Simulated scan of single mutants.
Amino acid sequence: MDLNTVVEVRDARRREAWQPGDAWLGGGTYLFSEPQLHVRRLIDLGRMGWEPLTVGAEGGLEIAATCTIAELSQFPKPAEWAAAPLFEQCCRAFLASWKIWHMATVGGNLCNGLPAGPMISLTAALDGVCLLLSQSGAVREVPVADFVVGAGMKDLQPGELLRSITLPARALAGRTAFRQASLYGLGRSGALVIGAVDPIDGELTITVTASTVRPIQLRFALPPNAEALREALEYGIAAHEYFDDIHGLPAWRRHMTFRFAEEIRRELTEEAGR
């Protein structure tokens, strides 16, 4: 879509003062999908030269905000990452066209803050931390689970930039389980639940996305039984936190969340103990 309100496109490397009507341009797959009447100037991140994916000295993974879904999918995952299958599972949850696959960015998916954003699901479930850069040069870190605060709502100040997301080595080494549902074959996720087991202390984390307006995590120091899990879901997710749109009614999303969480509990606790 043509953005006929945009009068200028600037290179982000020039570090010009942020103005009302400015917007960061990454892959642009959302930005150009519908009118952006408030946008007057695009600040293009395309030439920043950020390395898409970097494995740190301690084994964690830094994902640049400009990393595309294709780059994340094709990145060779180390053998010691038990959570490696989760990357492709979340990438494929896009059900995107070739064009979107090669242009959409991880950072853009997070900054849209949509409940069905699978990069939100992936990075939240693996205890990802966002690195945010302000216009003043200040730096702050925010867990992905706290970065998205509602449907389309993020913890971002005007002009603040998501630079990268870091996944700790400990989370990458843990076993995971993935469940996702849509109302129809090529539909947007209506419920997406991920379970992760800490490789050191065995803590089980259930991360709920798509069915809720924000990522919600439930942590269990000891393996829960079915009753304990259900009680945690009932008290951990308020009725108003289930998303309501054309892709699924709250009651259906709640039902699928409870069903998937129980399937994951059995897969990661009961079946593992056999």
Rank of each mutant, 00 (worst) to 15 (best):
R254G: 00
W50Q: 01
D146A: 10
V148K: 00
L156V: 01
F147N: 00
G49I: 07
E141I: 11
A65G: 00
R140N: 09
I43P: 05
G202S: 09
A173P: 02
L233D: 01
A79Y: 15
Q36A: 09
T105M: 01
R92D: 04
S33M: 04
A70M: 11
F94S: 11
F243L: 11
L268C: 02
E263P: 02
M256A: 10
A82M: 12
P224S: 01
N112G: 04
V139C: 13
Q217C: 12
L132G: 06
F32L: 10
A238H: 08
Y242T: 13
A145C: 10
V213H: 12
W98H: 15
E234D: 07
R13K: 12
A145P: 11
M1C: 08
L37T: 12
V9W: 04
G59C: 04
A96N: 08
G236S: 06
F258M: 05
Q36T: 15
A238P: 13
P78L: 13
Y184C: 01
M1F: 08
A145Q: 14
T68S: 08
I63Y: 06
G128L: 03
T257R: 13
S182N: 01
P223E: 08
H240Q: 14
T205K: 15
D198Q: 14
S134G: 14
Y235D: 14
L31V: 07
R14S: 09
G49Y: 10
F178R: 05
I194K: 09
R15C: 04
G113H: 00
R188N: 01
D245T: 00
L72W: 07
A79D: 14
T29S: 04
W98T: 13
A82D: 11
F75S: 14
G46Y: 11
L131T: 01
G202P: 14
I200F: 12
C130S: 08
L61V: 06
F32M: 04
A138D: 12
G49A: 10
G107E: 00
P20M: 10
P115C: 11
N225E: 08
G117A: 10
I120V: 06
F147P: 03
A191M: 02
R253K: 11
